[in-house]
Write a protein that binds this DNA or RNA. Structure first.
Lengths: 201, 201
DNA sequence: CGAAAATTTGACATGACTCAACTGGAGTGG
DNA sequence: CCACTCCAGTTGAGTCATGTCAAATTTTCG
């Protein structure tokens, strides 16, 4: 729904009717079924996507042939490979739906035009990117100051509902370790809480 | 020099005389001697800094009491703790001069006023933050796809002159490993090239 | 010149990985 | 509704990259 985007923008700048209409007329709606891709490696990334419903993931294949997730795209997040989007060079990333999702797409050309027609959007995106940068710094902090196990527990405590929505191996990939290791971490906690239950034989 | 900033902004948006003057009147100049701080942990970060000359580093103290560098600020880079800058909560970061440096400071209040008076700056900062985000993604890629040794060699090949300007322990901290380990990596390369020289006894 | 800081080196410890086998559930087709 | 396959998750053994600690050496700088 286009409304979701307009509502989101209005949290940061106040659009008038005319501006909102201009935006709605320029953007595209995309429905993606679970496991479908909107970007694959070697494609040129032609749009920036706003997730209005569902959940996406952005990953690349590392040198060992394994998927390395760098970002999840939840409701109200923008997701794309900006490197490819900006330069029109082939991407190394995949963007795939984890659930059936609804996206709003903004092609590079449209985005440039809209930024000129609706200058408030410059402010909107400035604020969004500034927030993203702040979040990256925080994530980097955790990466360097916590062990893998702590990072896992911390993530679960911050986003308990989200963790339910995705398979464990994706979380392991995002947090930067192997699914096996995640399983071992969980094993520890299980056995700890088992000790507090009456044993059944 | 204030000119450095104006020149930098003009690379992305075209300022007229009046706008340039407005900006110059609002910003502050700061000279920092090597090893001096412009931000320390528990301070509230009150400004965003543009490095017009010299080199800064941004780091925090990790749980083992060691400095963890998260960012260097070279000429024409903005550097600050945006989390503290935005929220006015105490920072966990230190920002220190690695060399005698000249900075342009922009307080939060001034930045907000300037963004209103000179809307082109919204565009300027939108572009800057977008670039920063793209760079973070790239850095993250390397972090996940290369070994520590590769990341070191890669960094040296990208920024050979910069590596000369800073002590090794800072580079180790930035890249995420210990100075001892960096020394061992270098040791390997030395012995390799020594083999190609005539031996002296 | 002397003190402090930075770097090097070696011995040893360990967290996380790889590989491989196994379990259990979900989906599919006969 | 059962048999089969496939995928996610679990578990264990062995390995390796990198860390820690400590001492020795070199460099920097007042």
């Amino acid at each position: 729904m286009k409304d979701n985007l307009i509502t989101h923008i209005n949290k940061f700048v106040k659009l008038d009717e005319h501006e909102a209409a201009l935006i709605c007329d320029s953007i595209g709606l995309v429905e993606v079924k679970k496991k479908k891709f909107i970007l694959k490696a070697d494609d040129i990334c032609r749009a920036n996507y706003f997730v209005s419903k569902g959940c996406m993931r952005l990953y690349f294949i590392n040198r060992n042939g394994q998927e390395q997730i760098t970002q999840f795209g939840l409701e109200n997040w923008w997701i794309t490979d900006y490197a490819s989007f900006e330069t029109s060079h082939p991407s190394i990333y995949y963007v795939q739906a984890i659930e059936d999702s609804e996206l709003i797409s903004l092609s590079k050309k449209t985005m440039e035009e809209l930024l000129l027609k609706v200058p408030k959007l410059e402010r909107y995106f400035r604020i969004i990117f500034q927030k993203v940068h702040t979040a990256s710094m925080r994530r980097f902090e955790y990466q360097r100051d916590q062990t893998d196990e702590e990072r896992y527990r911390h993530f679960v405590s911050l986003f308990p509902e989200f963790v339910q929505r995705i398979p464990q191996y994706m979380l392991a990939s995002y947090l930067g370790f192997t699914p096996q290791f995640l399983s071992k971490i969980r094993g520890k906690r299980e056995s700890r809480s088992k000790n507090q239950e009456p044993r059944k034989e």
